[in-house]
Amino acid sequence: MTIISDPLEGWSLPAWTYDDPDFFRAEQERVFAPSWQVVCHISDIPARGDWHTLEYLGESIIVVRGDDDAVRAFTNVCRHRGSRIVDGASGCAKKLVCPYHAWTYDLDGRLSGVPQKSDYPGLDTGKHGLTPVDMEIWRGFIFVRLVSEGPSVADMMAPYEDQVAPYRFEELTALGRVTLRPRTVNWKNVADNYSDGLHIPVAHPGLTRLFGRSYGVEAETHVDRMWGDLIERPSANWSERLYQTLLPPVPHLPEAAQKRWLYFKLWPNVAFDIYPDQVDFMQFLPVSPTETLIREISYVLPDDRREMKAARYLNWRINRQVNAEDTQLIARVQDGMASRSFSIGPLGQSEVCLRAFCRQMRALIPQAREEQRPTPGWSRT
């Protein structure tokens, strides 16, 4: 049988897809609505009535621990007039009460209170509970999605379960609070940069001092994996050198993980930076064709050793600089893509993560195969 290769294999997505309103609209429906998004960790809602929210694609999702200790996810929308029910990122409540007309919902989503109920003859309260949302708890992290389509998080991460298991994700607790960092770039530029290994020795001198030539990348169907192993040679930078020196042994990790920084990006925009000392969660939420909200927080296991506390602080210092460097990089790319001289660019054989990403985007949105911007309005037809 003759295998016909795709002529676009090995080429980037066209520049117009990084600022086009129609493409962004198509992404919302075909890429993000069926994709899994992290809301929080189970340790963030330890008690009955604890809740967390996530806002994206114009939706507000609430995950709440019920009186039966079960965790559930719903749209944060009253079934009466569509009002948002809770405000803010987190809280605790015995019941969920709409601030508009006081329709009241139990923590399992059932409609349990309707003021002036006689005004609604024939209202079946059993059919007007909060609208449930697909939810999956994977190793303690609570994921939701708006459309029931595609593999589970567990299936996506199956190739790497043995690597993740020793880090005891289920026992993690938050270190600090969620940080929100707006960026005036398309979300794909953030995702591309995260999975790009070629820029590490060029644009991240700190990581190069830490990893030497050990940085690697690989791509599975739904997950990119990146990694770097800390080298023995002391860094010339004091934060990096102290981190190399003070990072203590972690008894529950295998020898190969003691000095490894491990990164996973789950399709399309959820990332875990896994260190011996902590786990950083990050996601790149699309806001508009040229705006992205980076949402991140660190999680840790209990460890009162002074060396571990110092290592976590130094990790933050090192990665603060890495984030500043990445912020400049993605801004330069977003600006450059606006040039009429650039359309698509070649991807090297080693750029396996970017090749896989482009392949998947073209499969979901065939217009990404067109080098020039289509006539406006195509996403509505």
Score class of each variant (00 low, 15 high):
Gly212Ser: 09
Trp51Asn: 12
Ser118Cys: 09
Cys98Tyr: 11
Glu325Thr: 11
Asp69Gly: 07
Lys259Asn: 05
Ser341Tyr: 15
Val190Met: 14
Pro276Trp: 02
His41Gln: 01
Thr104Val: 04
His252Glu: 09
Asn319Cys: 08
Arg79Lys: 11
Leu285Lys: 06
Thr125Pro: 03
Gln244His: 03
Leu172Asn: 06
Gln360Leu: 03
Met282Ala: 14
Leu247His: 09
Asp196Ala: 07
Leu246Ala: 09
Leu347Arg: 08
Lys265Tyr: 10
Asp134Thr: 05
Glu55Arg: 12
Phe264Tyr: 15
Val114Gln: 08
Phe264Thr: 01
Tyr313Arg: 10
Thr327Glu: 15
Leu57Glu: 01
Pro268Lys: 08
Ile274Ala: 05
Trp103Lys: 00
Leu8Arg: 12
Thr104Trp: 07
Val97Arg: 12
Gly150Thr: 10
Met156Ala: 13
Ala356Gln: 04
Asp106Gln: 11
Phe24Val: 08
Ile61Asn: 05
Gly197Phe: 12
Ala191Gln: 09
Ile330Trp: 09
Ala102Asp: 13
Ala26Phe: 08
Trp261Gly: 00
Phe211Tyr: 15
Pro376Ser: 01
Asp44Met: 04
Phe24Cys: 06
Ile137Lys: 03
Ala356Trp: 03
Asp303Gln: 01
Val153Tyr: 11
Thr381Val: 10
Phe32Asp: 00
Gln116Arg: 14
Pro376Glu: 06
Leu347Phe: 09
Leu266Lys: 04
Arg306Gly: 06
Asp22Met: 09
Asp155Thr: 12
Asn193Glu: 06
Gly140Gln: 04
Pro248Met: 00
Pro234Trp: 08
Asp19Lys: 08
Asp155Leu: 08
Thr292Arg: 00
His199Gly: 02
Asp326Thr: 04
Asp108Val: 05
Asp124Ala: 07
Phe211Met: 07
